[in-house]
Design a protein around this nucleic acid. Structure first.
Lengths: 135, 135
DNA sequence: CTAATTGCAAAAGCTTTGCAGCGCA
DNA sequence: TGCGCTGCAAAGCTTTTGCAATTAG
């Protein structure tokens, strides 16, 4: 599978086994959002012998390279999500912990408008809806 | 000043000197958003002799009691803001670190609508706009 | 008086870093 | 071959916790 190699080369990172493996974990994960622990355990489960320090370093590098995005759904752990080229925000169910992705053009537009009204350019944003199932 | 005493009693917390002092710091601070360190230093500067553990415990209790709200503008430190009864979101200038509060009825409404469309009730949300000054 | 609260210091995470050895280009 | 990368273990940070002394009601 040369796909990972290309992705790494494209962002100027050396193609190494740990990096390829971490990319593969993120690409094939059932859950798009994984913590460092999640990734680390997935690697161990797959029989890979990487240190958790490498997972930390690698995910941080991937973030810097724009390969992944870091989220903070709860105040502790970061979770990482592979960038698939589409922007979206998140809805987190407070009961099940399930994460749902959504996108609202209207909200995006309003955010930009609000920033402009204050004489600012919008660089980025964090929007998380905390929800629970309707009864 | 009995105002703090009442606020504490109202939420069922014993009225103690550290709690009163911490409330006063939050009420009189120039900046609405303070980290544990900020509060701790303000207390020391005021000549108060409290342990930082107490500041952590107290702010967490205040949060549980609804007296303050905890925010995570950057991924490290929490910052706390005294609840003054109005809901608002935040805009953070990535250059100066300045925090601006804003409120958009339209965004609030859209959020609720989006949650509903997914068969959820909206419990809360986090919205932070990262901005920089227009050139 | 009794239970809650506090301060100190130790413990507990999670994350980062130093360094020697290993691996990619 | 040379520089970057990795693993390990140690160090760092922020936050939490145990406990004896103190304080509020």
């Amino acid at each position: 599978m040369a796909k990972e190699n290309q992705e790494l080369r494209k962002v100027g990172l050396k193609v190494t086994l740990p990096r390829i493996k971490i990319l593969q974990v993120l690409e094939s994960a059932a859950e798009h959002h994984m913590s460092v622990e999640d990734v680390y355990k997935a690697l161990l489960d797959a029989g890979e012998d990487v240190g958790i320090a490498t997972v930390y370093r690698t995910l941080t590098q991937f973030e810097g390279a724009g390969l992944v995005t870091r989220h903070h759904f709860d105040e502790d752990h970061s979770v990482f999500e592979l960038n698939r080229g589409d922007h979206h925000d998140h809805m987190v169910c407070v009961e099940s912990g399930k994460v749902i992705e959504f996108y609202s053009d209207e909200i995006e537009t309003l955010q930009k408008k609000i920033a402009e009204e204050h004489e600012f350019d919008l660089i980025g944003h964090t929007l998380i809806l905390y929800v629970k199932p309707k009864k």
